[in-house]
């Protein structure tokens, strides 16, 4: 789906963190996963800015590994603080989405 940029802004960080939590991975791979999921508008640059923030906020651990293509890649793995952040993210998401559905179904 296209033109989701504004709506995705608040949740993309959680999406990226979740993908990282499953497996150690790198920026371009994360972008491909998000694209495959249906977020076709998400570009590498956007994921990159999120990764920088995750790094700054110490929610991930980083290892550099050589790549067969281009420069060495930074691989990201989640740490305890990241897992806690992710838990909070899903909690907030569940709240928001349940309330959104409630709003949609309900006659006010």
């Amino acid at each position: 789906m296209e033109n989701l940029t504004e709506m995705l802004k608040g949740v993309l960080e959680g999406c990226v963190l979740d993908i990282i939590s499953r497996n150690e991975t790198y920026g371009y791979e994360i972008t491909r996963r998000l694209n495959a999921l249906g977020f076709t508008d998400v570009v590498e640059g956007t994921v990159y800015t999120i990764l920088i923030r995750l790094e700054k906020n110490k929610l991930v651990e980083i290892t550099k590994k050589p790549s067969d293509m281009g420069p060495p890649r930074k691989f990201f793995a989640i740490n305890d603080a990241g897992r806690e952040e992710l838990r909070k993210f899903w909690e907030k998401w569940d709240f928001v989405s349940s309330k959104m559905n409630e709003l949609k179904e309900k006659t006010l």
Binding site: Y28, V43, G45, Y48, G70, P71, K74
Partner: peptide, 18 residues
């Protein structure tokens, strides 16, 4: 680095940055 990897994978620059 971001750009190098984008170039290596054959993408145009605006596909990387938006």
């Amino acid at each position: 680095e971001l750009f190098e990897e984008g170039a290596a994978s054959g993408k145009g620059v605006l596909e990387v940055t938006g």
